[in-house]
Write a protein that binds this DNA or RNA. Structure first.
Lengths: 213, 213
DNA sequence: ACTTATTTGGAACATTCGTTCTGTTATTTG
DNA sequence: CAAATAACAGAACGAATGTTCCAAATAAGT
């Protein structure tokens, strides 16, 4: 960062500016944020102490406060990053699928497989945050509501597009179907935290997907 | 509680017993446990301090420790009570319904209406506990797995009975359907914590219920 | 009245909490 | 070199954490 240094030149009251180059940041702020995100994701807000953060982020206690403010701000920034990543990930995910039915099928399968692979059993950061922090913080509530509508909308647009290009023939209301799939997706994130059974879960989502034809 | 007081009578080494009646408990242990359950349910484990419990349970700090052990034991006892209540509540709920489809329809509607009525936005204690405490505690994990299987089984038996008496004609695998409904039920508990929209949710479960015919 | 034991309020304990502060070290440009 | 400041280690803060302890008050039966 270039820091302008201004000073008064004698009695002329003229401001001149020249530049010093202070020490550059030794850590990547975004890398640190990713680490914070993973810790909050795994442990939740309350169960993550500042000492935990100091131990895991790899930067100094003071640097955390200098860079991110306080614990609350760091949490919200971490949460925002997660939302951004999962939102963009979802859109890209759908784009690469042959048709709507495969899209949703793979989405659910993916969630199940992720739960099985995840030895830390972190689940979904959004779900964890909803169940832990609603309704403590009104500003967070708003973010969560926006997030919900956002995802339901992505589901809805995907279904609508699928129907328009003839991949989908169902007469179900697509908005309701989107909400249903979003609700089911959240349910998978919860249920699959506890000893996920791949066959059991996969078979059950097949039943749900029979709604698409 | 009757306390037997034994003492040795002279050199005969004969044990005689008579009774003193100590002060009886002034508070109803179960009433206090219900209060603890509601507090843990609302705030979660980490965010509930012993001071919170002292303030809300109406009994002394020392009495909490004397009666329930420590915070961890009190939480688990509270959680057990919730499980018992919700399990028995569900069975009774299903028994009073005309047929399977109405049973599940009312169950989902009930969950939505509860979320809307609940100004504290407590959600579901089981869901909250899963997302907060998995995988910290292995013994809790076992309880949660048992709880899951238990509820899926209740759903399954209800569906099976419904099919046997001709209320249900679907050819879907009933075990998968039970798992799907359990997953969806958990999803509703999460989604409906954030500004629940009655029409949106009700319409979406109607789509799910179209699987029953 | 005496005995027994529960319940009480409140003090006390060592730890940990989130946060702030104080130096010291390190790095880059003028 | 000097100037500037990011990043550091670590102490320090008061408040809160979970837990234990103690003396006093209370209630019921002998």
């Amino acid at each position: 960062m270039i820091v302008p240094v201004s000073y008064l030149c004698g009695s002329d009251n003229i401001t001149s500016t020249f530049y010093y180059m202070p020490r550059v940041k030794l850590f990547d702020e975004n890398e640190v944020l990713v680490k914070a995100m993973n810790l909050f994701w795994k442990q939740g807000y309350s169960a993550t102490s500042v000492q935990d953060l100091v131990s895991h982020l790899g930067i100094n206690r003071a640097s955390i406060y200098d860079t991110f403010g306080d614990k609350d701000k760091l949490f919200k920034k971490s949460f925002q990053l997660y939302r951004k990543q999962s939102r963009e990930g979802l859109i890209q995910f759908f784009e690469n699928k042959q048709n709507v039915k495969i899209g949703f099928s793979e989405l659910f399968k993916n969630a199940i497989q992720e739960a099985i692979n995840d030895k830390e059993r972190k689940g979904c950061f959004v779900v964890n945050t909803i169940t832990e922090l609603v309704p403590n913080d009104e500003s967070l509530n708003e973010v969560l509501e926006i997030n919900k509508q956002d995802f339901i909308n992505i589901f809805f647009e995907y279904l609508k597009k699928g129907k328009e290009i003839g991949q989908l023939k169902t007469n179900q209301d697509l908005k309701s179907l989107a909400t249903l799939f979003y609700t089911l997706y959240n349910g998978i994130r919860v249920v699959s935290k506890v000893r996920p059974n791949k066959k059991e879960l996969t078979d059950s989502i097949k039943v749900a997907l029979s709604l698409l034809f």
